[in-house]
Design a binder for these strands. Structure first.
Length: 398
DNA sequence: ACGTCTCCACCTTCTTCCTG
DNA sequence: CAGGAAGAAGGTGGAGACGT
């Protein structure tokens, strides 16, 4: 190839790349990109003087990396993770709103029992839900030795046994979570001895989410997630009678979802930690209820592409659709707003947010087929339709 | 010396608030 | 109620450092 041809080809690839709409990685075709990338490396001697060359190579390299992380989450692949039901059903998301204090406690009233539920010391959004999905999935894989366990392995027999455990944990028989920020802390040794502990690295976390977070981001996400305190009504699947039944446990004390520590595994010479190893233990009340639900198959499946949806779409799906497979669901506006914690008092804007950020993306992603908007007695209501076939791994509860 | 990875400044998207 | 500004979170991609 002559220098002239090389230059032409370079210009072509550059134009193609620049014409991609942002976000580029969503528009780009992985195979084309890889081919262009190879070509670029081959013609580098002819075009490396051009300052745009290094930028283009850099850009392509990054987009390819993002796509390769995401490729497992593409709809045609079967790469899915499990999502524990209790968390999805019981937790009202709390995100930082415009004029709200950063860490003020959040309260709401639970529908069935009328119990006041509280979230303390932190926020709880899509990323936290996602982190719990990953931890739960890893726990199941560990318990089942790399496949999901086939047999139920409940931790609790009934509500009283949960209550006993709550008192036991509260009287200090079990050590309180300590600050996990010092890397070589002895916590890890203690966590290793816990019955329900898991160990994983950043790479595992990325693999199970298809989200491109660096080690610091993953560490902070886990740290923040582990520090949130809940006092809520939590649904637990109990096997008291022949058929498994979901019952609600009213927590009396605040509890965190898990305890965690980590080790720096790979450190670059400038001190940047490239990979960490995490130790997570479900040794809190909430954690044990979570583990219990997972080990009694109280979970649903999620495609990885789910994590790319806007926040409201993810939350609406988790709270209303994931744990059942009704072909038709009617929801009124206020119910949606309450359950996914949208607080806009301007009705018009609220409706627009729900339609544009939640329902339309869900339709686009194929998670619902279509929806209708009607005026009901209680104001606006939405009817969601799905004809999606039931996957064999899914079970109907309630 | 070159390719790859993290960082971070800047940009886009999403939700709430404000104004008419 | 509509439209737009403002604030927060998340995405983007160039700069620059690391490792082979």
């Amino acid at each position: 190839m002559t220098a002239m041809e090389a230059m032409q080809r370079f210009e072509e690839i550059l134009r193609g790349y620049e014409s991609l709409k942002n976000p580029k990685y969503k528009e780009a075709d992985l195979d084309t990109l890889k081919r262009e990338y190879e070509e670029l490396l081959q013609i580098r001697d002819h075009v490396k003087v051009d300052p745009r060359y290094q930028n283009l190579v850099n850009g392509l390299s990054q987009v390819i990396r993002r796509l390769e992380l995401n490729v497992h989450g593409a709809p045609e692949s079967n790469w899915r993770t499990v999502s524990e039901r209790g968390v999805n059903k019981a937790i009202v998301p709390v995100v930082r709103k415009r004029n709200q204090d950063k860490e003020s406690p959040f309260q709401w009233t639970e529908d069935k029992t009328g119990q006041t539920c509280e979230i303390n010391k932190g926020l709880w959004g899509c990323r936290n839900f996602m982190a719990m999905d990953v931890l739960g999935y890893i726990l199941l894989l560990k318990e089942g030795k790399d496949i999901l366990p086939k047999e139920n392995a409940p931790l609790f027999e009934n509500l009283e046994s949960i209550s006993r455990r709550e008192k036991e944990l509260d009287t200090g028989k079990v050590p309180k979570p300590s600050n996990p920020s010092d890397a070589e802390s002895p916590d890890i040794e203690r966590i290793r001895k816990e019955r329900y502990f898991i160990k994983f690295t950043d790479r595992d976390f990325r693999k199970f989410t298809s989200v491109d977070l660096n080690s610091n981001e993953i560490m902070n996400l886990l740290l923040e997630t582990s520090r949130v305190e809940f006092k809520i009504v939590f649904p637990v699947r109990l096997l008291e009678s022949k058929t498994a039944k979901e019952k609600s446990y009213r927590m009396n004390m605040f509890s965190r979802p898990f305890e965690f520590g980590y080790l720096d595994k790979e450190i670059r010479s400038d001190g940047v930690v490239v990979c960490r190893e995490y130790y997570v233990s479900f040794n809190t009340l909430l954690g044990e209820m979570l583990a219990h639900n997972l080990l009694t198959k109280n979970y649903d499946w999620l495609d990885h592409s789910f994590y790319q949806l806007p926040q409201s779409a993810q939350l609406l799906y988790r709270r209303f659709l994931l744990n059942n497979n009704f072909p038709r669901i009617t929801l009124n506006l206020q119910t949606i707003a309450d359950k996914i914690n949208l607080q806009d008092k301007n009705r018009t804007n609220l409706v627009r947010t729900i339609e544009e950020s939640a329902l339309q993306p869900l339709v686009k992603q194929g998670l619902i087929d279509r929806y209708e908007k009607n005026d009901g007695l209680d104001g606006i209501k939405f009817i969601l339709y799905r004809t999606r076939k039931v996957k064999p791994t899914e079970e109907i509860s309630t």
